[in-house]
Design a protein around this nucleic acid. Structure first.
Lengths: 186, 186
DNA sequence: GCGTTCATTGAACAACCGTAGAACGAAGCC
DNA sequence: GGCTTCGTTCTACGGTTGTTCAATGAACGC
C-alpha cells in the first residue's frame, strides 16, 4: 500500500518530470488544440504545479514548440505510390497523437503554422522528386492533402464511416488514387 | 464629405446591423477559429459595440451557431464522380468562407462538431446511395475526406503548391481518384 | 406632442489566463 | 555537518474574456 521510495537522483527526477509534462502537453494539445490548452491543465495532468511548467519551458509557446516537434519521418523506399501508402498506414496505425498535436494546433494557432509549413515543404520536395511528371509538385501536394484529410476526418472529426473502418480497407480503396497521382502506371 | 442620411426605418436598421455582425462573425471565425475570435473583435469589425452583439445573439456560442449555418447544399446530378467533382469545384471557386468557418472552427471548438457531423452524415448518406458498391459508405467518406483535405491545405494551411494551383488542374488530377472511388468505371 | 419602444452605448463584474517571484525542503558537494 | 543548489509549490498581478445592466437618444404609435 505504501508508496515505494525509488530514491532517484536529482537529474533523473528532473528528466522524468520534464518528460511527463511533455507527454501531458502532447496529449492535451492534440485533444484540445492550442488555445483551449492551459498551462494549469497540462500541469495537473502531469501531476505537478503550473509554475513548474513555466520554470522548465519558459512559456506556453515554448512548451508547444517542444511538444510539437515531430521525429522527422524518413520516407519509405520503393515505388512512390506504395511508399506513400506505407506512410499513410503508419499514420493510421501508430498512435496518431504525434501528428495530431501538430495538425490540430496548426489549425488553431496561427503562429504554429510556420514549423508545419517547413516540415511539409521538405516532405513535398522529396515526394515530388520521386514522381515522374511535370506537375510533380502539385501531385505530391494532393497526395499530402488526401492523407491529411483522411487523418482529420478519422481522428479529429471522428466521422463514423472513417473512424470505424479498418485501416486495410482505407489503404486498398486509396491505392488507385495514389497510383494515379504518383504517375505509377501512367 | 458629409455622411448621407438614409433615414432607415428601425426594422431595416436592425436587420442590416444584424447582417453586418453576422458577416463579420463569419469572416472572423473563418480566419481565427472559435477560440481566438472575441466578441469585441467581431463587434469592432462590424462597427458596433460589443454589448450589442450580446443583446442580439445572446452568447458567443449562439453567434457561432448562427454564423456557421450552411445553406444546405443541393447535390449536383449526373454520374456520381462528375457530380462530386462539381461539388469540389464549387468549394474551390466560390468564396470559401462559408465552409471555412465551419471547417476551421469545428477543429477548434469541440462543441461545434455536432452540427458539422450531422451535416456530414446526410451528405454521406445521399452520396453513398449514388455509389454502386457494397462499401459505398466508406467510399463516400473517403471522397469527403479528400475534399476536406484539399480545402484545408489550400485555404487554411495555405501550402503553396496547392494554394497557387489553378482549380482546373486540381480537378483534372483528382478526376481519376473520384472515378475510382465512386465506382464509375468499375 | 407625448409617452413608449428599442437600437445602441459605456462601464463594470467575475472568471480565467499566462506569467513572475518569493518561499520551502530535500539532494548535492566540500 | 553546513552551505549551496535546485526541484517544486504557493501566492499574486495584470490583462483579456464572456457577459450584464443601467443610461441615452432617436424612431414609433397614438
Amino acid at each position: 500500500m505504501s508508496a515505494e521510495k525509488p530514491r532517484r537522483t536529482r537529474a533523473e527526477q528532473r528528466r522524468e518530470t520534464e518528460a511527463r509534462i511533455l507527454a501531458a502537453a502532447r496529449a492535451t494539445f492534440a485533444e484540445l488544440g492550442y488555445e483551449r490548452t492551459t498551462i494549469r491543465n497540462v500541469a495537473s495532468a502531469a501531476g505537478v504545479n503550473a509554475g513548474l511548467v513555466m520554470h522548465y519551458f519558459g512559456s506556453k509557446e515554448e512548451l508547444f514548440s517542444r511538444a510539437a516537434k515531430l521525429p522527422d519521418e524518413e520516407l519509405p523506399v520503393g515505388h512512390p505510390a506504395e511508399a506513400l501508402l506505407t506512410s499513410l498506414r503508419r499514420r493510421l496505425d501508430d498512435e496518431p497523437v504525434a501528428s495530431l498535436v501538430v495538425l490540430r494546433s496548426v489549425l488553431t494557432h496561427a503562429e504554429a503554422s510556420g514549423e508545419f509549413r517547413a516540415a511539409a515543404a521538405t516532405w513535398l520536395d522529396r515526394m515530388g522528386a520521386a514522381i515522374p511528371a511535370a506537375d510533380a509538385e502539385l501531385r505530391a501536394a494532393l497526395i499530402s492533402a488526401i492523407i491529411n484529410g483522411v487523418v482529420i476526418d478519422r481522428y479529429l472529426l471522428k466521422l463514423s464511416s472513417l473512424a470505424d473502418a479498418p485501416a486495410d480497407d482505407i489503404i486498398d480503396l486509396l491505392r488507385p488514387c495514389f497510383e494515379s497521382l504518383a504517375g505509377e502506371t501512367r
